[in-house]
Computed example of a mutant assay.
Amino acid sequence: MDKAEPQETVSADVPDGPPPSLHMVQLLAGFQFSQALYAIAKLDVASQLDDGARAIDELAANCGARPELLRRLIRSLAPLGVFRQPNEDTVELTPLGATLSARRPGSLRDVALYWMETHYLPFSEILHTVRTGEPAARHYFGKPFFDWIVADPDMAELQNRGMAGLVGGIRDRMFDDYRLPAGEVVADIGGADGTILSRLLAAEPARRGILFDLPEILPSARKKIEETGMADRVDVVAGDFFESVPSADVYVMAAILHDWDDASCVRILQSVKRAAAPGARLVVIEGVVPPGDEPHATKLIDLVMLALTTGKERGEAEWQQLLSTAGFALDRIVPTKEDYSFIEARLL
Rank of each mutant, 00 (worst) to 15 (best):
A4V: 11
T9R: 12
T9E: 12
P15C: 07
V25P: 00
G30F: 07
S34I: 14
Q35G: 08
I40M: 04
L49E: 04
D50V: 09
R54T: 04
A61M: 12
C63Q: 08
L70S: 09
L70C: 08
R71Q: 12
S76Y: 14
R84H: 13
Q85A: 01
E88L: 08
V91D: 02
T94L: 10
L96Q: 09
R104P: 02
P105H: 12
R109H: 08
T118N: 11
T118Q: 12
T118I: 07
E134C: 03
F146V: 09
A151K: 11
D152K: 08
M155H: 05
A156N: 08
E157N: 14
R161V: 06
G162A: 11
M163E: 11
I170F: 15
D172K: 14
D172W: 06
L180T: 07
A182Y: 08
G194Y: 03
L197N: 01
R199Q: 14
A202F: 05
R208K: 15
L214D: 09
E216W: 05
R222Q: 13
I225W: 01
R233H: 12
D240L: 08
D249W: 02
H258D: 13
D262C: 01
S264G: 04
L269F: 06
V272D: 00
A275R: 09
P278E: 06
R281A: 10
L282I: 10
P295G: 11
A297M: 15
I301D: 03
K312P: 01
K312T: 11
E313Y: 02
A317G: 00
A317C: 05
L323N: 05
I333M: 11
K337D: 08
I343S: 00
A345G: 02
A345N: 02
